[in-house]
Design a protein around this nucleic acid. Structure first.
Lengths: 229, 229
DNA sequence: ATTGCATAGTGTTTATTTTACACTAAGTTA
DNA sequence: TAACTTAGTGTAAAATAAACACTATGCAAT
């Protein structure tokens, strides 16, 4: 007990809600707790913010330590601070959400497979702490954000077909979209760059592959541009 | 030094960015610091989160203590956690933003007038900590949110004229709007309820006064409705 | 009482955006 | 070569947004 203060201090943690799309399902990463409280139950990857690291660094670090995922789009979601959200002591948690592409998922396998797992968002197990509530908040935010910021690209491999992108939108927004209208709208943004490649190994007509023109988006975003689907 | 921990704990504070519209200016409330660090400099109202109160309660409490403002729309903005943002020790700050109507401003006068003051957003003094950055974040959020959520009503007295509402939008979004189109759009939402009153004490034709139908908005919002200007 | 002044209040036309909708093209497999 | 699967494409109708200017009302000054 080396650290003393005149007034009680809360602990500050981070929790990460990491989404991906796999086999036409929106999934998120959970880990099985190896310590009390809630030992054995599923929870969001996360942990304590160290005294000498920023909150965001803590989120990246914990995510990497617990799931092997790194170098991803990570955005602050909300800070949860109900007095009794942790049974041990006062804990304030800054939640982040993140998107990883189905390709990067494979990297995640280098962690202990027993303790980190992808769950479809509507087949979640019982969750520790208030993590169910945090996930609901993140899911709502993801749906909202998807419609006006091109974060959907983060969930796809660098080169993707338009049908993959559409399918991703349909999965997250949970509704069918019109193929022609979707394509028109996406093309009109000018954010897609044509690679001159096509899909490989598919048993039907191969689709053209595109990449997301992030440089162009950054320029547009700076001048108050809003992407809208 | 009665509170000891095995690991160092950060302090957690709240900071409030309180906006109002006064004389056709968007203003925000600052207080003059009476203690180190940054003594004498201007800063956002705020303070430490107590161990037995939620973050949001802390924000409300601090705001009331330091400015006299209470019972207002208060929304979490962002959590700022750079390691060196406070020269004394590690402090993580959860920022909130709030809107008060020009009527409620008068209540704020019951605080020490020397230490709490409204500043136009583009005539801010030098600010303590990273509060300039927090304010920029809040201002951007306010502009964004105003366009798709009817928070503008919070900045007006309960009964208001359409021209007041339009003026408020023009001030915050910093651009002129077309009177007829604005009125059409606002009316079409069905969120305005006609009081059968008119302005008093104006030296020209008196405008009809409206109230904001919050019940109706809440119902619409629940079903995924988005207000848009 | 009349005039001037300031703000309130009101519709229509045009341009733009969104929606609805169905067939042909290309590649793979049996 | 026929059958299957997904890729890729355009147009018309409807809805929404944008541009635009005058009359109405109430008060104040003379």
């Amino acid at each position: 007990m080396k650290y003393s203060y005149q007034y009680p201090h809360p602990s500050v943690t981070v929790d990460c809600v990491v989404f991906t799309v796999q086999n036409n399902f929106l999934k998120l990463m959970l880990i099985q707790r190896g310590a009390e409280p809630f030992i054995g139950e599923w929870a969001l990857p996360g942990g304590f913010v160290r005294i000498d690291e920023s909150i965001e660094s803590a989120a990246s670090r914990e995510l990497k330590e617990e799931t092997g995922i790194e170098n991803i789009y990570l955005e602050q979601l909300y800070t949860f601070g109900k007095v009794d959200r942790d049974p041990r002591e006062r804990v304030i948690s800054v939640a982040y959400y993140a998107l990883v592409s189905s390709e990067e998922q494979i990297i995640a396998a280098d962690t202990d497979a027993a303790s980190a797992k992808w769950f479809p968002v509507d087949e979640l197990p019982r969750l520790a702490f208030d993590h169910k509530y945090i996930i609901e908040t993140a899911y709502r935010r993801l749906q909202g954000k998807l419609s006006y910021q091109p974060i959907g690209f983060e969930l796809l491999p660098p080169k993707f077909a338009l049908s993959q992108l559409q399918s991703l939108y349909e999965i997250i927004l949970n509704k069918k979209l019109d193929k022609r209208n979707f394509r028109k709208k996406i093309q009109k943004t000018g954010l897609l760059a044509d690679t001159n490649e096509t899909q490989k190994g598919v048993s039907h007509r191969a689709a053209k592959l595109y990449t997301f023109n992030k440089e162009k988006y950054d320029i547009l975003a700076k001048n108050g541009y809003y992407f809208e689907i």
